[in-house]
Simulated scan of single mutants.
Amino acid sequence: MAEPKEQGFLDDIEEAAAEEQAAMEAEISPQEDEIATLRAERDKLQDKFMRALADAENARKRSDKDRREAENYGGSRLARDMLPVHDNLKRALDTLTEEQRAGAAALFEGIELTLRELRNVFAKHGITVIDPQIGDRFDPQIHEAMFEAPLPGTRAGEIIQVSAQGFMLHDRILRPAQVGVSSNRE
């Protein structure tokens, strides 16, 4: 058994060691708190940075899409305003009789060349003609029914008359083709 004097000495050593341990923990604790605070702040800033980066990427994609749409569809208003010019030139050619064509060949040729050039400009800018034919199936996506009438020898939903051609700008309708549709119910 240890002597009481030795026991007191051992107790003093253990007590000094415990005090030293407590002092070390007291020193480490503020450092660990500061490290934890810095890590939390870093994580918060990293999250903000990633969100800002994602927002910037989304804005870039949106502006690219807007730019492409402006390039492709920015002239749709002008194109829509030019459609009656096309229609009138086409009507002028369609109404000329053979006598008129022979008598005014230069005028006829001028109108024809003007119409051809207008169609070339349309094609250059992505405008295509929707030219339905009699007997084609009515498609509400590209045709507009101006009237419906029963016509013998036709089926319901067939185009029986074309009033005006339609036009598309790339993949969008500028003006649907205006048609008459059979209403026969066979």
Rank of each mutant, 00 (worst) to 15 (best):
P4S: 06
L10W: 07
I13R: 08
E14N: 01
E15T: 11
A17G: 02
A18V: 01
E19F: 09
E20P: 02
Q21A: 15
Q21E: 12
A22E: 12
A22G: 06
A22Y: 11
A22F: 06
E25H: 03
I28T: 02
S29V: 00
D33W: 03
E34K: 10
A36V: 05
R39Y: 02
E41S: 05
R42C: 06
D43M: 08
L45P: 04
K48F: 01
K48H: 12
M50Y: 08
R51G: 01
R51T: 10
A56V: 02
E57W: 00
A59Y: 01
R60F: 09
K65S: 04
D66M: 10
R67C: 07
A70E: 09
A70C: 01
E71T: 03
G74H: 04
G74C: 03
G74S: 00
G74N: 08
S76A: 07
S76T: 09
A79S: 03
D81E: 10
L83R: 00
L83C: 04
H86Q: 10
N88D: 11
R91I: 11
A92D: 12
L93N: 10
T95S: 15
Q100V: 08
Q100P: 09
Q100S: 13
G103E: 14
A105K: 15
L107Y: 15
L107C: 03
L107T: 15
F108Y: 15
E109W: 11
I111P: 06
E112T: 14
L113F: 13
L113C: 12
R116A: 14
L118T: 05
R119K: 15
N120Q: 09
K124G: 02
H125S: 06
I127D: 00
V129I: 15
P132N: 01
G135S: 01
G135Q: 04
R137G: 04
R137E: 12
D139C: 00
D139L: 07
P150Y: 00
L151F: 06
P152V: 08
T154H: 04
R155V: 03
A156P: 09
G157H: 05
E158F: 01
I160E: 07
A164I: 11
Q165R: 09
G166F: 03
F167T: 04
L169V: 13
H170R: 13
I173N: 05
A177C: 06
Q178V: 11
V179E: 09
S182M: 08
S182I: 12
S182V: 10
S183P: 01
S183V: 07
E186Q: 13
E186N: 14
